[in-house]
């Protein structure tokens, strides 16, 4: 039953084929369109309802209505995309491209420009 040299064909094939890995920093990584990398906000359509803040499982979004500021702690975000699903105006979108690592956690704030009246 037991055989020898079963792995030899795989090894030989491997020896004469191109590497399967990418030469990463030289060759950029390609993310598919659906890749869940980070949340982006379109402030023009955002109505500051705060639904994203209330439904974030990890509590990483803060909405400050009086100052019209939308804040996200990208280090706490788990990229589930639930905020984008619940957003009534579809101002939140999940886009490819991961958050860069850092030495400490910080928040990114986006302030809505004051509307002309």
């Amino acid at each position: 039953m037991a055989q020898l040299m079963n792995f030899a064909p795989v090894v030989l094939k491997n020896l004469f084929s191109k590497p399967v890995t990418k030469n990463y920093p030289a060759e950029p990584a390609v993310y598919p369109a659906r890749s869940r990398g980070h949340i982006e906000i379109d402030l023009d359509t955002c109505i500051m309802c705060g639904l994203c803040m209330r439904s974030c499982p990890s509590g990483s979004i803060k909405v400050d209505r009086p100052n019209a500021t939308w804040t996200i702690n990208r280090f706490d975000c788990v990229q589930c995309g639930y905020c984008a699903t619940v957003c009534p105006k579809k101002s939140l979108t999940m886009n490819p491209g991961y958050q860069e690592p850092g030495e400490e956690k910080f928040e990114a704030s986006y302030t809505k420009p004051a509307e002309e009246k």
Binding site: F7, V10, V11, N14, V20, Y31, P32, R34, S35, R36, Q79, C80, G81, Y82, M94
Partner: peptide, 29 residues
């Protein structure tokens, strides 16, 4: 060791198609 690499190389192609279809490699959401 080399058998280990072969299995994980195959796994990688499954992960790629999962990322393409769902947006996540392991956690699909």
């Amino acid at each position: 060791e080399s058998l280990f690499y072969q299995c994980w190389r195959l796994r990688e192609s499954v992960l790629d198609v999962l990322e393409l279809t769902t947006g996540g490699r392991c956690i699909f959401s």
